[in-house]
Each structure stands twice: as C-alpha cells, then as structure tokens.
Design a protein around this nucleic acid. Structure first.
Lengths: 201, 201
DNA sequence: CATGGATCGTACCGATCGGTTCGATCCATG
DNA sequence: CATGGATCGAACCGATCGGTACGATCCATG
C-alpha cells in the first residue's frame, strides 16, 4: 500500500513535484522574480495546493534551499569520495565537477548564496551558513589528508577559491575557470610535486 | 557664482545627497528591500525631487552602482599604488584593506555583486561585469610585476581569491579572512621566498 | 456506489509597489 | 518686491504581490 492513509492521488508526490519544478523556476528567475501565481502555472498546480503543502512562499523557499543544499553537498562529497584517497586527485575531481556545472546552460551561481543575497530573511541566511559549513568541512578534510599543518586554514582558503571560482564563472564570461582554480588550489597544498602539474602559469 | 544658471538651492548638491544617502540605505537593506516612499523619507527628500533627478528607481540604482564601482576601483588602485613596487607588498596592502572593509559594521558584501544577484536587469549586470574587469585588471597588473609567466591567469586566480574572501567574509562569521586570503595569494606568486612568510599553514 | 480528502480554476482581498499630480512653500535672481 | 525654478507633502493611480475562499471535479477507499 504505497498510497498514504485516507487520501487520494498521493500528496507526497505532489509536494515533491512542486519542490522540483519551483526550484528550477526560482533559480532561473530569482526568488522575487516570479510571483506565486506564475509559479503555480509553471509548476502546473493550483495556488490552494501549493499553499496547503507549504503554507507560505517563504516556507517553500526554505524547503527548496534545504533540499538543494543537501543535494549539492551530497554531490560534491560523492565526487570527492569517488576520486580515491589522493588529495591531488580529489581536488582535480572537485574542480572538474564544478567546471561541468559552470558549463551547464542553466548555471546561475550558487542557489544558496543567491538566496541569501536576495532574501534578507534570517532562516535563509541560516541555511546558507549551514551550506558553507558543509562545504568548508569537505575541503578541510582534503586539507587534512594533504597533511597541512593547519588544515582548517587551508580548508578555508580552498573554500575561498571554490566559491570565488563559482562567482567568477557566474558574473564573467570566461572559460577554464575550473582549471585555473584547480591549479591555484594545488599550489596551496603542502609539499606537492610541482613538476607534475601542467606548466600553464 | 557657484550656483547654476536660473535655479535655486543647487540641484547638483541635492542629487549628490540623494545618491549618497540612497546608496547607504539600499546597500544595507537590499535593492528591493526598501520602497521608493521609505527611501525618500530616509534620504530626506520628496518623491517628486527624487524622480526629477533620476527618473526611475532603476536609473537611480544604476547611477548609484556606477559611482560605487568607480569609488571602490579607485580605492583599491590607490591602496596598491601606495604600497610601492613590490607585488608582495601590494598584495599585503590590498588584502589588509579588504580586511578593514570586512570589519566595518556596515559591511554587507560587494554592492555590485549583490545588485547583479538581486536585480535581473541587463544594465546592472553590465555595471557588475565592468567592475569585475577593473578588479581583474588591477590584479593582473600585480601578477605582471611579480613576473608571472601567464599574468592573465594569475590575475584571474587572485580575483577568485579576493572575491572568494569577500564572499566568505559576507556569509560566514569568521576572523582573519583577509590574512588567510593574503597567505594563499602570496603562495601563488612565482619564485617567492616562502621562508619569509609566516609559517601559519 | 457513496464518502471525503486532494486538486482545480477563478474570483477576491488588503497591502504595497513604482510612479504621477498638484497646490503650497521656499528662495536666489532680476 | 516679483518671478520662477526647486522642493515639499500628501493624495492619488494602476499594477502586482502574497494569500484566502469557494464551488466544481477527481478518485482511492470503505
């Protein structure tokens, strides 16, 4: 019995559909760039349904951002995990994945940072802060495996590079952002064999 | 006769006052976070006056961003110029200035990047792109003086670091962002005497 | 087949938005 | 002192916003 108790059509599926479709529209156009009416049209759902599931546009946005943050965090963690144990390979895989993201036609920067910049609501800022903490933790782990004397500092420097790369890819029309960020990231690793790097600089 | 022909009270001064006060309010609360009515109250001017000087809220925003971009660009260029000829000293001065900015209670990130994220208007995106170009040019100049084989690449990497540092300072409550970014930036310079750096990493 | 929750479509609400208008006031100039 | 541009303050406008209400419809369950 996959259908919930005493209901029809499966509300859970409806909620998931709203979340997925609304995420795409609000990411492309901005949180304040599309009203609830048009949002419902795009999603293919009535206003009453949307409001019964989320109560408020802000709540929808928060649910959306939490899911997105978790998805991105899991994605990057998987990319790193699949790259083996070498921090060099892990960073290569990470910035390679970021570059693929930058090349996606729908790429419009980090959804959480965009939201925190657009919406001055405390809950949104909290979600963004949590997202950056997860990001920082992933990079600090790489810094530890690389044998950094101060992995929390190197982790934060790698975070600046990764977020800076995303920012530049968002606002400048440029190629090879990921490759250049990777090159800089590798240069920050302790006792790295520089001769093994492409001599692009 | 400092007062313009055939007028009273000095409109130029009024315009400058509006621009300055509106910049502070819109930077703190966001471009869409305060309406024109409240904006006029805060600035201390009537709506008719504001609209006669700028015609549109969007035009006011654009004028504001252009002035802000020019101001920031001039500020950073002066900081670098006053630091002498050594790229090491120039980066130290640059990230030191950025850190002072981060410590300012009214600091809320880069106004141009915030605006480009909030307002999906082409003119705003153009101003932001121009601002990043100026920023990139300044850093590429430092990269050239440092003797980088590919100064345009090193310049872009320094831009990622600087903007990434600003981003982290905006969204994470952390200290020493400027110092850590500086340390990373110096590590990217070619043939730098690493022993002279603080061994913090 | 009847019930009732889920959904739809639409009309509606109050609030706020960007922008306009207008009469009153201020003040440097002629 | 009279003129006229700059400014004020408040009323006003149409549009849009987030959110609600309601009758009709759909459909899995009992």
């Amino acid at each position: 019995m996959p259908v919930p108790r005493g209901s029809t059509i499966d509300p859970e599926r409806t909620r998931a559909t709203i979340l997925r479709a609304a995420t795409a529209v609000l990411y492309e156009r901005g949180l304040d760039g599309v009203g609830v009416a048009e949002l419902c049209t795009r999603v293919g759902v009535s206003k009453e349904t949307l409001y019964r599931h989320f109560g408020t546009k802000d709540k929808l946005v928060e649910a959306m951002l939490v899911e997105r943050s978790d998805h991105v965090t899991r994605w990057l963690a998987d990319v790193v995990a699949d790259a083996g144990d070498d921090p060099h390979d892990q960073l290569t895989a990470l910035f390679g994945a970021l570059q693929e993201w930058y090349d996606d036609p729908v790429f419009r920067g980090c959804a959480m940072l965009n939201a925190a910049t657009q919406h001055h609501v405390e809950a949104v800022r909290a979600i963004t802060a949590r997202h950056l903490d997860h990001y920082l933790r992933l990079l600090t782990g790489i810094a530890e495996r690389a044998g950094a004397a101060r992995p929390e500092i190197l982790g934060r420097q790698l975070l600046m590079l990764a977020e800076g790369a995303t920012l530049v890819a968002t606002h400048q029309s440029t190629t090879d952002v990921g490759a250049h960020a990777l090159q800089a990231a590798l240069a920050l690793l302790p006792t790295t064999d520089q001769a093994a790097l492409p001599r692009a600089m």
